[in-house]
Design a protein around this nucleic acid. Structure first.
Length: 203
DNA sequence: AAAATGATCCTT
DNA sequence: AGGATCATTTTC
């Protein structure tokens, strides 16, 4: 069966709606090392100029955030704490710098390669859910780095596809993680995750 | 030019 | 609970 990539109409919708409906979809990276696929199980919405938690609060435009001002459906990747990459899907029409932050995946394909990239030899024990249950971890496992900034997620290297399986799950809504600097926006329930899914980064 | 910061992860 | 670690942004 072939992949059914999300089309431009999917990415042209409201950011919070996109954050919710990305749950259950497959993120695919077809790299020279091999293919890895993970089901998106946790997301956060970042609402651009009106969101104190967003990198683009008050339309702050820098080299780093430039791609967020572009058209939706492209990759926004940045380095955090000098060590970890974070992957986002740009949303909002051109000039509206919004994004959906991908916080956790459930490994679907290329698990051995993910293990190698994460340097975890044995996932049978306590590390069972540790491969992709966090934004930095999933970027390591999927080999997502700044070389992928601006990638069109409807092309063939890095893309998001409809799931190949029947899905039936409930969506939980919660506060976003690690944005205490954002004052009242830290209370906004813009984090979404699949209920009961063991790969979610934090309950 | 220098200082501060961080949408995280790992170890203690 | 605290440290790693440095690109990026902010301040001077």
């Amino acid at each position: 069966m072939e992949y059914r990539k999300l089309d431009r109409f999917f990415y042209e919708r409201d950011t919070e709606e996109i954050a919710k409906t990305l749950l259950g979809k497959d993120l695919v990276h077809d790299s020279s090392e091999g293919k890895t696929v993970g089901k998106i199980v946790e997301t956060e919405a970042y609402l651009g100029k009106d969101d104190p938690a967003a990198h683009t609060y008050e339309d702050t435009r820098t080299d780093r955030t430039e791609v967020m001002f572009g058209p939706p459906g492209h990759a926004y990747v940045y380095l955090i704490y000098g060590m970890y990459h974070c992957f986002n899907v740009v949303t909002g029409e051109e000039g509206e710098p919004e994004a959906v932050f991908i916080r956790a995946l459930e490994p679907i394909k290329g698990v051995k390669l993910m293990q190698k990239r994460r340097d975890i030899d044995d996932i049978s024990g306590s590390k069972r859910y540790d491969l992709t249950n966090g934004p930095g971890k999933l970027c390591m496992a999927m080999d997502i780095d700044k070389s992928l900034i601006g990638e069109d997620l409807r092309e063939d290297e890095l893309f998001i596809s409809e799931s190949k399986e029947d899905q039936d799950f409930q969506i939980e809504e919660a506060k976003r993680i690690n944005i205490d600097y954002a004052d009242e926006a830290a209370e906004w329930k813009l984090r979404y995750y699949i209920s009961e899914n063991p790969y979610v980064s934090e309950k």
